[in-house]
Each structure stands twice: as C-alpha cells, then as structure tokens.
Design a binder for these strands. Structure first.
Ligand SMILES: [Zn+2]
Ligand SMILES: [Zn+2]
Ligand SMILES: [Zn+2]
Ligand SMILES: [Zn+2]
Lengths: 135, 135
DNA sequence: CTCCAATATGTTATGTTATTACGTACGTTG
DNA sequence: CAACGTACGTAATAACATAACATATTGGAG
C-alpha cells in the first residue's frame, strides 16, 4: 500500500510503461499508452494495466481519477506525504503536484470532525496554470 | 456552471433519476440507475446520462469521480460554497458532504502559490465513517 | 544444478462506463 | 400555424477496465 522506499527493479513491461509516462508532457490514458507501445509488442490492455498497478504500488506514478489517466510522479519526496493534490491545467493538460502537511492535517481533522477517518484521498484541482493564464 | 439558485422544474426523466438518487443510501452508477428505471420506460444509457448532466447543472446531485457514481446532494447550502469534499465510506459506501470555507481558501491559495488558478475541484476522501469504524 | 514456487507475461473474452449520431416529439413564442 | 429550442428515443460505438486461463521467466531452497 505505502510505496516502498527503495527503488524496485522494474520488469520489461513496467519499464516501457514508466518510460512512456516519464517522457510525456501530459497525463496519458491506459489506452494511449497501449497505442504507443504496439511496436514494443504490447497487444492487450491488461499488459498496460498490470504495469500501471505495479508502478502505482511502487509510488512511481499516480492515477488521476477525474480524467482516467496516469502521470509519472515528479515530486521529489512524494512517498513521505499522506496526501497529494494534483492541479491539472485545462488548457495545456500539464499537472502540478502539490504536497502540504498543513493541508493534509487540516483536511484529515476536518473529516474527523465530520465523523470520518481518512485512509486515502483524491484531490484534483482543475483550472489554469500561470503559463496558460497569461495567454 | 454555477448552480442556479432557484429550483428548476424537472422533466419526467430528470425527476425519475433524481428520485432514484435521493432514495438511495449509497451513490449509484449510471447503469444501476438505468436498471432501476427499466420499468419506467428507460432503455438506453443516454436517458440516464442526459438527466444526470442536467441535475448536476442544477446543483441537485454530485458526481463522484473516484467511483464513477452519482449521489444526491444532501448539503443544505452546497451551492454557496466553492469547494465540496466528499468522504466516502469504504465499508457502507455512504457519503458525507463536507464544506469548509477555510479549507477552500487554503487549498485555493496553496494552488496559487504553486502557480495555478483553481476553477473546479474534486476532493474525495476514502476511509471509514464512525459507524463502520467501531464495528 | 535442479526443482519448486512466485511473479510476470500473453491472449481472448467480457464487463463497465460514456458518447456520437440521428431522428422524433413537444412546448413556447410570435 | 410556423419556427425554434429543449427534451426524448434508439442504435451504434467509443473508451475504460477486469476475468479467466495458459505459458514463461525468475529467483531461491535443497
Ligand atoms: Zn508524486
Ligand atoms: Zn497550462
Ligand atoms: Zn452538495
Ligand atoms: Zn460506513
């Protein structure tokens, strides 16, 4: 569940999927990854989904629920934070990862005050990045 | 975009879909709504999705991105808040709606500090409600 | 090294969620 | 009534995700 701290050795398929995500400017859907990896022998969605599952488990990538897509983690110490927020630009599709301990504890205690114990969070903000906003 | 303040008159299909969601204890998927409404003449997904879109527009229901489901709004003044957080119990599936102006402004300024202007948010917390936690 | 078990992979089929495209019905307005 | 906008019906298809089963690879234990 919690991403392991040590870098795991990736298998062939995991490496290919991870490379695709790292080199992408934007989040990719599983099926667009599949398309990209046809030449590498990928034939079926499951080859992608299985690799994605493992990469998420390793903490190397994130899933963005609101757009059914996946993005390579660009945050240096993502694994050390409970909650991560994602800011997804609706113009350029780029994603900014935001961690903030105050935010995390505020949100958790707000939930507690409402009779709820948080174990996992999905925080996805839509809007415009500064680059796109000035254009 | 912003839900209208006045109560709109619902059409037949919208009424049926809204009633299904209001009477449900848990969030429903579009297809489970469709199944429930077969006897009322529903035949195709689009009948559900069109009604859902309108109900969301009216601010009467919410979409939960992380579970591809929909829930009737139970929050008295939901429309007056920028951000709503949803706490989804992984045991009983019930949803608690949480609004908090401090949370909203904190999150928005945190995003601003990271070079991002928020226009819309998805905040979904998974965990256990107090009722389920003691069991 | 050999055998075993765990993990990873390949493949087909299927399940689930959501939209496109097109045509019809109906209420409102002038 | 005619013209318009909104809602509705239906079929087809797109997009996203998993089940089930077979085979291959890998990494210890003996
Ligand atoms: Zn990260
Ligand atoms: Zn942008
Ligand atoms: Zn609400
Ligand atoms: Zn519960």
């Amino acid at each position: 569940m919690t991403p392991s701290t040590e870098a795991p050795k990736l298998t062939k398929n995991q490496t290919l999927v991870y490379r695709a995500l790292k080199s992408a400017e934007e989040p990719l859907s599983a099926y667009s990854i599949l398309d990209q990896l046809r030449d590498d022998g990928f034939r079926a969605p499951l080859q992608v989904y299985r690799a994605l599952d493992k990469l998420i488990e390793f903490g190397l990538i994130h899933r963005l629920e609101s757009i059914n897509s996946f993005v390579a983690c660009r945050h240096p110490d993502c694994g050390t934070h409970e909650m991560v927020a994602f800011a997804i630009c609706e113009s350029c599709n780029r994603v900014i990862e935001i961690t903030d301990d105050a935010m995390a504890s505020n949100l958790a205690s707000l939930a507690r005050a409402n009779g709820f114990s948080v174990s996992r969070s999905t925080i996805e903000l839509r809007g415009l990045c500064d680059t796109c906003r000035v254009h």
